[in-house]
C-alpha cells in the first residue's frame, strides 16, 4: 500500500523567554493509506506537538527548523497559509483533545458543521450538506435531530461524536485523533472507540491516534511510535512492539499498565519525571530513569538514532544494543 503521509526528520522547537524548548526532535514516520498509526507517551513527550506541526497549527512560538512532511505528494513544510487551508480539513482533519468543549455555545451543531462544509466546498447546496450531515450522524451513532440542538443540550459523549462527524465532513484522507476519549468515562470511551474504528474501515481512512493509554493504543492501531522527550524511541507494528518491546521505556510503559485480563501481576512504576526539554540532553534521554542503565547509556558521546531490531521494527540504538535485561 502507498504512503499517504511521509514525515522525515521533523524537528520543531518553541522559542521561550528561558530558551528554546526542543519539543520534536528528528521524528520520522510513514502512514499508509487505510492504516491506523498510534503515538504513545507521557504528558509533555511531544505527541501533540507532532500532531500540531503536521497541520502547521502549532503555537506562534513553535518553529519547524528542519524536516519535511509529505502528504499525498504535497510538501507541507513551508507551504503558504492559503494552500494550507485547502489541505486542512479537506485532506487532513484533526480531533483535538477536549474538542467537545470547543463548540460555539450559541450556534446549533448542524449549522457549525455546515459552516465548515460551506468553506471547503462552496459548490454543494444546503440540502446536499444536510443530507451529508444526516449520513455522518448515522455513521457515528447520533440521531439526525442532534443537528438542530445546541451544544449544551448534548452529553459529553454526544458532543464528542458530533466532533468526529465534523472531522469527517469534508471527506479527509487522514484523521488525527489527539486523546479523543480522555475526558470520557470507560463505557462512553468504548462506544466512541468502536465508532471511530467502524468509520475508519467504512471510509478507508488513515488514522493517527495519539494517547497516553497503552491499552487503548493496543486496540486501535496497526503500528505505533513510542515517544520520549521529543524523540521516537521505538516504532513498529503494534503486535510486534507489545510482544517484543526493545526500548527500556516501552517496557516500563507496558509494566505500569494494569489489566483486567490474565493473571494479576505486580506492576512496576517508573520513577522520576521526564527531562525538561530546555536543557540539551547528552547521551540517552531516558538513562536517568532507566531501571537497567549501563555505563554506556550515560556516556555523553553516545550516538542516538533508530536501528532495525525486527521486521519493520526499529528502536533507539542505546537500548537495542543493551545487554542488561
Amino acid at each position: 500500500m502507498s504512503n499517504i503521509l511521509e514525515v522525515k526528520n521533523l524537528t520543531m522547537h518553541y522559542e521561550t523567554i528561558d530558551g528554546d524548548v526542543d519539543a520534536v526532535k528528528n521524528v520520522s514516520f510513514n502512514v499508509k493509506a487505510g492504516e491506523s498509526f498510534g503515538i504513545v507517551g507521557e504528558s509533555g513527550c511531544g505527541k501533540t506537538s507532532v500532531a500540531m506541526s503536521l497541520l502547521q497549527l502549532q503555537a506562534e512560538n513553535g518553529k519547524i527548523s528542519n524536516g519535511s512532511i509529505l502528504f499525498d505528494g504535497l510538501e507541507l513544510v513551508g507551504m503558504s497559509e492559503n494552500d494550507l487551508r485547502k489541505v486542512r480539513w479537506d485532506g487532513i482533519s484533526i480531533v483535538f483533545q477536549g474538542a467537545m468543549n470547543a463548540w460555539n455555545p450559541v450556534v446549533k451543531i448542524g449549522e457549525q458543521i455546515r459552516e465548515a462544509m460551506r468553506e471547503h466546498s462552496p459548490e454543494s447546496s444546503k440540502s446536499q450538506n444536510t443530507l451529508k450531515i444526516n449520513e455522518l450522524f448515522t455513521m457515528v451513532g447520533l440521531d439526525s435531530s442532534v443537528a438542530d440542538r445546541f451544544p449544551h443540550e448534548l452529553s459529553g459523549g454526544m458532543k464528542q461524536r458530533a466532533i468526529i462527524a465534523l472531522a469527517l465532513s469534508c471527506d479527509p484522507k487522514l484523521v488525527i485523533a489527539d486523546e479523543p476519549t480522555t475526558a470520557l468515562d470507560v463505557v462512553i470511551q468504548d462506544q466512541i472507540l468502536n465508532e471511530i474504528k467502524k468509520v475508519q474501515e467504512l471510509l478507508g481512512l488513515s488514522l493517527i491516534y495519539i494517547s497516553h493509554d497503552i491499552a487503548v493504543i493496543a486496540e486501535m492501531t496497526d503500528k505505533i511510535a513510542v515517544m520520549y522527550a521529543g524523540s521516537i524511541v521505538e516504532i513498529g507494528p503494534t503486535e510486534q512492539v507489545f510482544k517484543f518491546p526493545k526500548h527500556s521505556y516501552t517496557r516500563s510503559l507496558l509494566d505500569s499498565t494494569p489489566s483486567i485480563r490474565g493473571e494479576k501481576k505486580k506492576l512496576r512504576s517508573l520513577e522520576g519525571e521526564p527531562p525538561s526539554l530546555i536543557n540539551k540532553i547528552d547521551g540517552c534521554s531516558f538513562s536517568p530513569r532507566c531501571p537497567t542503565p549501563t555505563n554506556g547509556c550515560k556516556n555523553q558521546s553516545i550516538e542516538m538514532g533508530l536501528v532495525k531490531v525486527g521486521n519493520d521494527h526499529y528502536a533507539d540504538k542505546c537500548c537495542s544494543e543493551c545487554t542488561s535485561e
Binding site: 497503552i214 493496543a218 486496540e219 507489545f242 485480563r261
Partner: peptide
Amino acid sequence: RLISSIPIPDPSYKR
C-alpha cells in the same frame, strides 16, 4: 457491560 468495555493492553486479544 462494564467489564467488556475495558480496553486490554494486548493487541492480539480481540475483545
